[in-house]
Design a protein around this nucleic acid. Structure first.
Length: 180
DNA sequence: GATAAGATCATCT
DNA sequence: GATGATCTTATCA
């Protein structure tokens, strides 16, 4: 086994839907004082550009959304509903706000379903906001050679964005069919 | 099984 | 002062 390398910035600096689709089957790795946890990515959602009403950056560049305008490969972590953290990775070129939300992973065969639970399991909180995920410190993504056939990944509407009008109907959620 | 409501706070108006 | 890229628990059928 070669020394695992984090996915590089060039990987994330591509069209968001491409990144989202190909992140399914990759691994999310969390390293902290308690050790290392790695989870296979099962489900993601794409949030793309200031026209996308469901994307936080559609309301303009603010202190919170600023990171999405930055370089690809940074972490966008925020608190939602007062109690849950959500983990995103910024995609595309600078000045173009877009990100991929990590919704579900599988750790040791156990499904961690939902961004809030995921962040609790991986101990992701706002201290990781703006972290560079391409340097392999604390949190990063890895390609462990898992090949996900095209037919195994379904496309669905995004969750919890009914307010976003026609953007709510975009099939920008990617979920891997669970094998058994 | 399905649906509804409550928790709780950073961020924006 | 309103609201949300959610999750858990309670209540009903």
């Amino acid at each position: 086994m070669a020394m695992p390398k984090p996915l590089p910035r060039a990987y994330f600096n591509r069209p968001t839907l491409t990144v989202a689709r190909s992140l399914v089957g990759k691994y999310l790795v969390r390293e902290n004082r308690k050790g290392t946890v790695a989870g296979k990515i099962i489900e993601v959602e794409a949030y793309i550009g200031s026209n996308d009403q469901a994307c936080h950056a559609s309301k303009g560049r603010t202190a919170r959304t600023d990171v999405m305008f930055g370089p690809a490969g940074l972490a966008y972590v925020y608190l939602i509903y007062g109690m849950h953290h959500c983990l995103n990775v910024v995609t595309e070129r600078e000045e173009f706000p877009a990100a991929v939300l990590i919704r579900a992973v599988e750790v040791d065969g156990e499904l961690i379903d939902g961004p809030g639970r995921l962040c609790r399991a991986f101990e992701v909180d706002r201290s990781l906001h703006r972290l560079d995920l391409t340097i392999g410190k604390s949190l990063w993504f890895e390609d462990r050679g898992v090949d996900v056939p095209h037919g195994r990944v379904g496309r669905f509407p995004r969750i919890g964005v009914d307010y976003a009008g026609k953007w709510a109907n975009k099939l920008w959620r990617f979920r891997m069919r669970l094998s058994k």
